[in-house]
């Protein structure tokens, strides 16, 4: 019996190059779908709220500890340098600028990339390899809307709030360290810390946090949705979610700082 097969697939450039661009196109489509879903109700408010809780409230202990310690350590390490110039009274200003302009958005993003990104990557990866996402798809239950849209939206909303919270605990840590060494009232500390911070700094920090939040959850969802080969694939998805989003966060940080610089 003669068996026909479809003629061998021809590649545009080479198998590797073609699959790279196919991957880029697939990722772009995946991201683009989010913006399409923005205009398609229903919006899954209860699931978004549940994800906000998971992403926001569940991250608070780790962010509190990290932010607080960063505040203390950064103050402690900066003191000798300022002390050489008799400028320790500038510590609150320095900490305020450092926290708002760089540390809080970046540290919050890196912590969330580790905690939230790995969690989403592993959860969706496990759902993918156990065919749960396909099961949603074949029952017309719109898995992208339920799993991706909700997580990304929750992350976009929660990251700026987490960033502001990190700033608060970092400043608190800093104040404790400064007040243990110098006599300074909390009101003076706050006035000095915010003295050099303007609305553009605040806006830039919120924009950064929003972009980082989008990146972390989108990358994690994409990696989870594309997990293959059983439990090993789940581990790889979680790992790739963290590593890829960290790379992107640093690149985005650099780009946003450049862009904000044009407005200063």
């Amino acid at each position: 019996m003669q068996i026909n097969t479809v003629s061998k697939k021809k590649y545009f450039l080479s198998k590797k190059v073609d699959s790279f661009f196919a991957g880029v196109a697939d990722a772009a489509r995946f991201v683009g779908d989010y913006f399409t879903q923005l205009f398609k109700p229903p919006y899954e408010f209860s699931e978004i709220l549940r994800q906000c809780y998971k992403i926001g409230v569940d991250s608070l202990p780790l962010i509190s500890l990290t932010g607080f310690i960063i505040g203390i350590v950064f103050t402690k390490q900066s003191r000798p340098s300022l002390s050489d110039f008799g400028a320790t009274s500038w510590l609150p200003n320095l900490i305020g600028i450092a926290v708002f302009r760089a540390l809080a958005p970046l540290v919050t993003a890196l912590i969330c990339a580790g905690k939230v990104g790995s969690s989403i990557g592993a959860e969706l990866g496990a759902m993918k390899v156990t065919e749960q996402i396909e099961a949603m798809d074949v029952s017309a239950s719109k898995p992208y809307k339920y799993l991706v849209f909700t997580r990304v939206t929750a992350s976009v909303f929660m990251m700026p709030l987490l960033m502001l919270y990190t700033s608060f605990v970092a400043l608190l840590g800093s104040y404790i360290n400064i007040s243990a060494n110098e006599h300074i009232s909390i009101s003076t500390f706050i006035a000095n810390a915010f003295d050099k911070i303007n609305f553009l700094d605040f806006k830039a920090a919120v924009i950064k946090a929003t972009v980082f939040g989008f990146t972390i959850s989108m990358v994690a969802c994409y990696k989870g949705f594309n997990a293959i080969r059983g439990t090993e694939g789940v581990g790889k998805a979680a790992n790739a979610a963290v590593v890829t989003s960290m790379y992107l966060i640093f690149i985005e940080e650099l780009m946003i700082v450049q862009i904000i610089g044009w407005f200063r």
Partner: peptide, 11 residues
């Protein structure tokens, strides 16, 4: 309707 080999229940 599609019944999956490993059931694919949402765990």
């Amino acid at each position: 309707g599609f019944s999956f080999q490993m059931s694919a229940l949402y765990d």
